[in-house]
Design a protein around this nucleic acid. Structure first.
Length: 402
RNA sequence: GUGCCUGUAGCUCAGUUGGUUAGAGCGUCGGGUUGUGGUCCCGAAGGCCGUGAGUUCAAGUCUCAUCAGGCACC
């Protein structure tokens, strides 16, 4: 098997950990820093692959848990792999399903924000209704689709991801929440590290068993919550193993995101890519890139789009609000995206109120374009040395509306 | 003309043998959404309970009258 995966640095920003580069995969290159679009169930919600391409997305990230339950990873394998199945011909990622350990487990139906506050849940019976139970060997959970019982282990996650056939896969990990105590974080980190090694070993076995498959890269995932000793131990341990790159995961307090990412990236090898999982707020993106992150993925652009919010240079705007009823300007004046080139706020406001499905599509096109362009602009600024100028101007306008 | 049924939030309706400040869903208005459990989460505004009398300590609820809509019969 040829290893047609690598990462090449293009430029580094003096005095920071920021860098630009190129990730090469069997399905094409990714210029970094890059925003990776999320397509959980082998579709970027409400968007065709042509539209995904038109917003300049370089890669799509799908989810092993969801595809395992529906339509089943074996079916995707039979279809010729994720890329062919969903008609997306660029690079693909799959997440391991580790996130669902939290979202179906201790975090089930709870709102746990990035400060660590546990907000009131939709259901008061959270504790008794949780649908995932964790032990050192794996996670037992109940399908959100039909209630059937399943069990994930590091080995099964790798088998699923291998069948799905994404270019970049993540090791099976446990995502803890900010409100878990230190003792639990330690216990959880042991599991994540052991699962990383087991994921790696299982993949080696699969590579030998299927020597004709294109190379599928594996990223180990750094956990450790907000604790420096845990983050460092995790990053060092993973760095000493032969991963192709790294994910940085876990709930991270917004105010400490840059700091935590810096600890990790100072320890991880410079010549391998680092992906920050689940982040897309503009200030977080600047912080992360400045501290050495190469790629991101996040559901936010499409999720908030479906609920009526649009990213603009002056912050996020709720287009459902009545002030847009007769606003005949585009979401962002001068924005070259398909939505802004052809539609007004008033029309989008109407579609949202009428619950027309085109609203989701047009809003998603704009939001994905906007966040991807932000990251692309940051990449250019690293290459040209104007990163701090861009950061200051951009964030001032976005958060202070100046 | 006679009999019966129905009038409660913008809409569709709940409201116990009469008993605190009359509720829900939808809609409206505002906010939220960070490795997605595809129409989600939080909050707010909005009612002289058709109208007028009466019974009662107390009426959306009981009585009478009246207005409006519906059904049936002559």
């Amino acid at each position: 098997m040829t290893k047609d995966f690598n990462f090449k640095l293009t430029a580094k920003l003096e005095g920071t950990l920021a860098r630009s580069g190129t990730i090469t995969t069997p399905h094409g290159d990714i210029q970094t820093p890059a925003f990776i679009v999320v397509g959980t169930k082998a579709t970027v919600k409400a968007m065709t692959p042509e539209q995904v391409k038109a917003v300049k997305a370089q890669a799509v990230l799908a989810n092993a848990y969801h595809l395992y339950l529906q339509p089943g990873h074996k079916l995707i394998e039979k279809a010729g792999g994720l890329s062919k199945f969903m008609n997306w011909h660029g690079p693909t990622f799959t997440d391991s399903g580790g996130f669902q350990v939290l979202s179906l487990g201790s975090g089930y139906k709870k709102v746990i924000d990035m400060i660590g506050n546990e907000a009131a849940s939709a259901s008061q019976k959270t504790k008794t209704e949780r649908k995932a139970f964790i032990d050192d060997d794996g996670v037992t959970f109940y399908s959100h689709l039909d209630g059937s019982r399943h069990r994930f282990t590091a080995e099964l996650s790798m088998q699923i991801q291998h069948s799905i056939g994404a270019d970049i896969m993540f090791a099976f990990d446990e995502l803890t929440s900010l409100i878990d105590p230190y003792e639990y974080q330690v216990e959880s980190l042991e599991r994540t590290l052991s699962w990383a090694t087991r994921s790696h070993n299982e993949l080696k076995r699969l590579r030998q068993a299927y020597p004709d498959r294109p190379y599928q890269a594996l990223f180990g995932v750094v956990q450790g919550a907000q604790y420096q000793d845990l983050r460092l131990r995790c990053a060092k341990t993973l760095a000493s193993q032969d991963f192709d790159g790294f994910g940085i995961g876990g709930a991270i307090e917004k105010a400490r995101l840059g700091e935590i990412v810096r600890w990790v990236n100072q320890v991880l090898p410079e010549n391998k890519p680092r992906h920050l999982l689940g982040i897309s707020e503009p200030d977080d993106i600047f912080e992360a890139i400045e501290n050495g992150v190469d790629s991101f993925d996040c559901v936010s652009p499409t999720r908030v789009a479906r609920n009526g919010s649009a990213y603009t240079y002056e912050g996020r705007k709720n287009i459902v609000a009545s002030r847009y009823r007769q606003d005949f300007k585009p979401l962002v004046e001068g924005c070259p995206c398909y939505t802004c080139q052809n539609y007004t706020c008033a029309y989008l406001h109407h579609l949202l109120h009428a619950h027309e499905i085109l609203a989701s599509t047009l809003m998603s096109i704009h939001n994905e374009f906007f966040i991807i362009k932000l990251v692309d602009d940051i990449r250019d600024s690293i290459n040209s040395g104007s990163f701090f100028q861009l950061k200051q101007n951009w964030l001032k306008r976005y958060y202070n509306h100046i």
